[in-house]
Write a protein that binds this DNA or RNA. Structure first.
Lengths: 149, 149
DNA sequence: GTTTCATGTAACTTAGTTAGTTACGATTCG
DNA sequence: CGAATCGTAACTAACTAAGTTACATGAAAC
């Protein structure tokens, strides 16, 4: 799992889970999908559990399941649950009292607020079901196994 | 200069330059505005020079000047010249051949393209002149010196 | 109830990124 | 020439995030 790929890695995991909705998948299994470590998986998707997007159960036969239907899981929720920031730039004051800086931060923050609302609206309209539909289209076209190592 | 504050730090510098358009400011002077090192300043705004947003001259009396009027310098250009990425998440394949991953990346890239166009359009409408106007409004209101340490 | 399989989580290590620093060559003006 | 200034390479330091190890907790199977 590379840097900055938490969103795509998590979506990868979730689509796999959506394809086997009846069976709990272990962190170990999920980890192999994205070529990483079970502990990294648990840590990464812990926030999704808190948000009700997935559920986890311990012990024999335990593992991870989707918390609700893929149609009801939006990328916006997933992104928030992962703690991802949509816009990367910082606007924290470094020269308190400087009016130039205050002007810069004010304008940049206005932009940020508007931009984040726009992006959140777009992400809200994409659901996990859309992703699985896209996957199935590709699967039907090519007709091979779902996961290559 | 903190991490991820390159855009706001650079804008801070540019507004100061716009306030003294007749006088070349040295990297040393610019560095004090954002509490950092002259070399960091040169490195950071080198891209702005390549984009024609600022000019630099060496030797005695040298330094930095705006390359054109503040009305003709948009935040979109500045952001590009800094090499900033508007959206932070990565969508590079890590499991070539996995159809699930391909579906995820396809959807995410569609989103990214649309989102980046939206953001670029918004940033294109904000110019350095807007920032200086905001600064002057604050300055007139409070009526004190332009820069506190 | 013991064993086995699984998550939860803390603590540490490793790798990668970026700012900061030092040093010095190139350029310009007085 | 000498002082001022940028350009840039090379190195250091700080920070972040992933990877790893270890172990406690909980649940099912037997």
């Amino acid at each position: 799992m590379k840097r900055n790929s938490r969103l795509s890695s998590t979506l990868h995991i979730l689509v796999h889970m959506a394809e086997k909705p009846e069976r709990a998948l272990t962190s170990e299994q999920l980890a192999t999908f994205i070529h990483t470590n079970p502990v990294v998986v648990r840590r990464t998707i812990a926030g999704l559990r808190d948000a009700g997007i997935v559920t986890s159960s311990r012990g024999h036969g335990g593992g991870w399941l989707l918390g609700r239907a893929p149609e009801k899981i939006s990328l916006a929720e997933i992104s928030v649950a992962l703690g991802e920031t949509l816009l990367p730039f910082s606007t924290e004051p470094e020269s308190p009292g400087c009016l130039v800086e205050q002007a810069v931060i004010a304008v940049l923050d206005d932009f940020r607020v508007a931009a984040e609302r726009l992006l959140a609206e777009k992400l809200d309209r994409i659901t996990l079901a859309d992703l699985t539909a896209d996957f199935r289209r590709r699967f039907d076209l090519i007709g091979v196994s779902s996961h290559a190592v």
